[in-house]
């Protein structure tokens, strides 16, 4: 069972982790990424670097093990090509006897021209890949290159992060199976936009989505509205919320959303 958590160092990574990393933040260590790559060899994981090695978080090319794969084709800027390439490498790694793959990618604004929702959709797909294949995926986002709201949106769809867990957004949404997404933490008015974007991205992939609220502490009126709005964003969508605590279910009913006809259903 995956769970959201913060990692003190790259030593703490586990199979299936999808980690948000801010390389130029105060708590980032330049040696950290080297350790992440070096540990790949130690644990029998194949290293997959997306982008030219020198452009990924300052990782020197000679620090990359010879058996590593560097995906720096311009086509990998496209999500589908990127995911297809990474999945192919994961399958190859399995055949070659590796335990798993360790993906390191640096996301750049220039490559994310589709806006926050497109970027979040890509991260959800990456998260699903990490969850399904037990891969470790580290996504580097330099805060100096991104605006604050976009960083919050992408942070919300990484279950794991280096350093102290960012306070905003106060939720994390991540894959818990095919078309099933766990939501952890708190969805309040400060995170409602990011949550709306995450759910909109999730319902792109499937007309029926399950949200697991088992570890969601609280959702406020803005959060509930964000959920309903996202479900209504595309036609014929249906979201089933399961595992919500008593207070969340009470608030849903009190807010008037328990009526029939809504595309969001709060299961008992």
């Amino acid at each position: 069972m995956r769970a959201a958590r913060a990692l003190a160092t790259f030593d703490d990574v586990e199979l299936g982790d999808h980690i948000c990393w801010h390389p130029d933040s105060a708590d980032a260590s330049p040696a950290g990424v080297l350790a992440y790559v070096a540990d790949g060899a130690l644990y029998g994981d194949k290293i997959v670097v997306v982008g030219a090695a020198g452009a990924v978080s300052g990782l020197p090319r000679d620090a990359v093990p010879s058996a590593s794969v560097i995906l720096d084709s311009p086509r990998t800027a496209d999500l589908d090509s990127f995911l297809a390439a990474v999945r192919r490498e994961a399958r190859t790694a399995a055949r070659e006897g590796y335990r798993s793959v360790r993906v390191l990618t640096e996301r750049a604004p220039a490559a994310a021209s589709g806006g926050a929702e497109e970027l979040v959709a890509q991260e959800l797909k990456l998260d699903e890949f990490a969850s399904e294949s037990n891969a470790i995926v580290v996504c580097a986002f330099r805060p100096s290159q991104w605006d604050g709201p976009t960083l919050e949106h992408v942070t919300g769809v990484h279950p794991h992060e280096m350093g102290i867990r960012a306070e905003r957004p106060a939720f994390r949404m991540y894959s818990a199976g095919a078309d099933v997404w766990s939501v952890d933490g708190v969805i309040d008015s400060e995170g409602a936009d990011a949550f709306n974007t995450a759910v909109r991205a999730a319902v792109r992939f499937s007309p029926k989505v399950n949200l697991r609220f088992d570890t969601l502490e609280l959702i406020d009126a803005a959060g509930m509205h964000a959920l309903v709005d996202a479900a209504r964003h595309l036609p014929d969508r249906r979201i089933v919320v399961e595992g919500a605590n008593d207070t969340v279910r009470l608030c849903w009913e009190l807010a008037g959303y328990a009526s029939a006809g809504l595309p969001v259903v709060m299961a008992a």
Partner: peptide, 19 residues
Amino acid sequence: TRPTVDQVGGRGLWLAQQL
């Protein structure tokens, strides 16, 4: 008063009263 399902805002004070 109880909010309607299509009401955009105005739920905060209602929730506070109920909780």
